[in-house]
Every structure is written in structure tokens, then in C-alpha cells.
Design a protein around this nucleic acid. Structure first.
Lengths: 204, 204
DNA sequence: CTATTTCAAGACCGATCGGTTCATATATTG
DNA sequence: CAATATATGAACCGATCGGTCTTGAAATAG
């Protein structure tokens, strides 16, 4: 039950741009160029905002970066939420999730890299706010993959001796490494074959 | 046969600093702070050189960075040369090599990260000189690990169905991912256990 | 000794950094 | 209409960027 609060429409010019769209465009820039490699003019060009508007909306470069990073993380979590849906077969979900990685590490997508991995390397050691976010995402990813593997194990789908939690850590390290390698060698077939070979060691 | 060229000792003050030591100190700085995150004063402090001397010796920041990166790569290659010595048992060598990674991704070492991985993410996409070096190192690493695995396979030390070249790619992705994860979660025991669990899937 | 070379220290350069401020135009509501 | 709110764009800020240059001390060889 919502109280009918008498919200007066403010007079004056209404907000003329979409904040979330601006965050997304800023994310794209940080994604391609990194934090230190991104200058204010890059962000202004991408968001099509004036300096004043950008600072009014986001405070400063660092805050905008955190919002962009949060957005990237939210997208990644949503993807996992979808692929690891408990109603789906865990191995199917895992394969689909890995296929997404192959897609994202191929060709131009691969060269573009990964905002999380790049941020982890560039800032996580020095910037506590960033470090917490990266570590949090890592834990979340680990938990969901481990959960899927547990379900698979219960269904007898894993190879003998495979332990879900350590297998999850292996998979995550592998996937993050894939994003690093893809910066210079983004060949789709090789990536897919490597993923298949890895999976082959873990599923029955 | 060398012609006895009459090399006159130059008059004047002799070189008073060790260039290789300066490269190493510069490497440490880039390693900790990244390329864009490193400013000239950082390099001057670390190398204990004056601005003039540094520019006389190295040209500019980018050239110095390339020398530091080359040094890092040379060290890494030397480590592989040692561990994958053909006279040693390949599995022993591989285990020792992986143990070195665990060491380098634990605690403070882990937080420090890896100059190659950080550089791959920060510059490999935009800087051709850097990209070539990173890609070259990746190929070298892949080749040597694959070679060790081939020898292991010939000796019947690998699990059934393990193919040396794809297993090598898996291992490399895993190790590079380990360096990413270690930026925020550098716990030695977990790393070692994960490495062991991975190896367990590949060796008999 | 002198001539020569190398070094450190720091002034100096133009450009750019992230960030603030302000005048102006525009769009909306009462 | 007047009042209000928001956006732009440019001017502006001090600090720092990477890089050059000069000066003077130090150390060597002839």
C-alpha cells in the first residue's frame, strides 16, 4: 500500500539524458582503456555529457568508475543466474556458461578483454573499494560454479574423485586466464577445444 | 679471430651506475604500479638516477618499460629452462614449476601480481611492441609445457586421454588465472590444493 | 696540470591531468 | 507571462604529466 504523496513536478528543464546509459558508455571506455588509461575527455565523448553534467551526476572519475564496475559485475552475475538456474541440468548450464566465455574471448571480443580481470590487475591491490568488489565477485562466481558442480556430482555426472569446490576454483582460474590469453591469441576454435578438453577431465 | 683494435680508454668520469640494476628496479616499479600508474618520479626514486641520466640511458619511459618487460620475460624463461630440463623427470619438473607459481601467488607476492599478466591486460591490445612480446612469451610457455607433457605421455605418466598440447593450454590458462585471483585472495594452502587437484586430473 | 666525460640537481617546457565555476540557452510548470 | 530547473560549453584552476636543458661537481686519462 503506497501513500499518495503529493509529488510536485519540478518546474524547469527536465533531465535530458539517461544516467544508466551514460554509465554503460563509461563502462565501455574503462573496459577498453583501463582506469588510468581513460581521461576525462574520453568519458565526455563517450557519454556525450558536458563536464559539468558528468560531475553533477557522478561526483568524480573514481565514483563513475565504481558505478561502471558495479554495472559490469551485475551483468556478469545475471548471466550466471541464468545459466546456473537450479531448474536446468547443471552440466548443460556449465557448458553454456563456458560457451559464453569462448564467445567473449574470441576475435575482437577477446582483444577487448575483461573489465574485471583488467581492474583486478590494475587496481585491486591498491584500491580497497575496488578490491572488495573484485573479491566479492570472485566469491560469488566460485559459489555458483561449486553449487552447480555439487548438483552434478549428486546426479553422478562428475568423473571419479572430482571434488566440486576445488573443481570450481580450477574452472574459475582457467576462465580468467582465458581472458588474459585472449588479449593476444583470440582464436575461437582453439579456445573452444581447450574448454572442451578441460571439461572432459571433470565430467563423466 | 679478433683484430686487436686499439681501444683508447675514454677520458672523463666513468659510468657510475649499473644499468642492469636500474632496469631491474624500474621493473619492480612497473610491476607494482603498471605502466600508466607509474610516473617519472617513481622511476627516478627507484633507480636512484637523475632525470638526465635516465633519459640518456633509456631514451624514454616506453623504451625503459620494454627493457623491464624483456627482463621479466627473460627471468621467466630461465625459470622454465631450469624446471623443464630434458634430463629431469617431466612430472617432477612440472610439479616444481607449479610450486613456484604457488609461491609467487601467495600473500604479498600474490598481491603484487604479475607484470606479464598486468601488461597483457593493460597494453597488449593497443601497443604492438608489447603485444608481440606477450604473445611470444605465451607461445614459448605453451611450447615448453607441451613438450614436458609429451615426454610424460611417452613415459606413460599421463592419465588416459590426455593430449599434451591441449593440456598445456589448459595449464597455462589456469596459471595465468591464478595470478589474477591471487590479487585479492592470495591464500597459499588454497592455491596449492587447487593446483594439486588440477594436476590430479592429468597425471596417472 | 688540462681536457674530457659522466653524473646529480633542478629549472624549465608545453601539454594534459582531474576538477570547479559561471554565463547562457533551453525547457518546463504555475 | 514569470519562475524554476537543467543542460551546455568554455574558461579557469593548480597539479602533474613526460621530456629537455643547463649548471656545476666529480672523476678519469693524457
Amino acid at each position: 500500500m503506497r501513500h499518495e504523496s503529493p509529488v510536485h513536478s519540478p518546474r524547469g528543464r527536465p533531465r535530458g539524458f539517461d544516467i544508466e546509459a551514460a554509465v554503460e558508455r563509461a563502462m565501455d571506455v574503462f573496459w577498453s582503456r583501463g582506469y588510468h588509461g581513460t581521461a576525462l575527455p574520453d568519458l565526455l565523448r563517450a557519454t556525450k555529457l558536458s563536464r559539468g553534467s558528468l560531475y553533477a551526476a557522478f561526483g568524480d572519475k573514481h565514483s563513475l568508475f565504481l558505478r561502471a564496475l558495479d554495472r559490469y559485475i551485475a551483468d556478469a552475475l545475471a548471466r550466471m543466474e541464468f545459466e546456473f538456474d537450479p531448474r536446468k541440468d547443471p552440466i548443460d548450464g556449465l557448458k553454456a556458461y563456458l560457451a559464453g566465455y569462448v564467445e567473449r574471448t574470441s576475435g575482437g571480443n577477446g582483444r577487448r578483454g575483461c573489465l574485471l580481470v583488467a581492474t583486478a590487475m590494475e587496481l585491486a591491490g591498491q584500491d580497497a573499494e575496488v578490491g572488495r568488489r573484485v573479491a566479492g565477485y570472485f566469491k560469488a562466481m566460485e559459489g555458483r560454479v561449486a553449487n552447480a558442480l555439487s548438483r552434478a556430482k549428486a546426479a553422478g555426472q562428475l568423473a571419479d574423485g572430482v571434488e566440486p569446490s576445488s573443481a570450481a576454483r580450477i574452472l574459475i582460474c582457467f576462465l580468467w586466464g582465458l581472458r588474459v590469453v585472449a588479449k593476444t591469441a583470440p582464436t575461437r576454435n582453439t579456445s573452444q577445444a581447450t574448454v572442451d578438453a578441460l571439461l572432459d577431465r571433470f565430467i563423466r
